[in-house]
């Protein structure tokens, strides 16, 4: 069993986590093509990828930066870093 050492809740089996995909920030004001690019396009090439992970048993989302060539989490991201304001 593979274990992920989560800085918040400690070591947990990887199988307890669900994948939430790449973290993307919507363009607040944009034309249709830019919206399409935001909705569909992804950083497909190998490298560091910022992604959402959901810990099922505790019901909490995390953001991590993972090397998608080696499958290694290299950084645990403070949610403040990915937070953005929704225009009023």
């Amino acid at each position: 069993m593979k274990v992920f050492d989560c800085p918040v809740i400690g070591p947990r089996p990887i199988s307890e986590f669900d994948y939430g995909g790449e973290v993307r920030r919507p363009p607040m004001e944009a034309d249709a093509p830019s919206w399409a690019a935001y909705v569909f396009n992804r950083q497909g090439a190998p490298g560091l990828l910022r992604e959402w992970w959901y810990h099922r048993p505790t019901g909490r989302w995390y953001v991590m930066e993972r090397d998608t060539l080696k499958d290694e989490v290299v950084r645990f991201i403070d949610l403040e870093e990915v937070r953005y304001d929704i225009p009023a």
């Binding site: 790449e22 396009n41 992804r42 497909g44 090439a45 190998p46």
Partner: peptide
């Protein structure tokens, strides 16, 4: 390997591996 090739051209696509 498609995203590696398209990134050589700066072409964005929805493909994930």
């Amino acid at each position: 390997s498609t995203p590696r090739i398209t990134s050589m051209l700066g072409l964005e696509t929805p493909i994930e591996i």
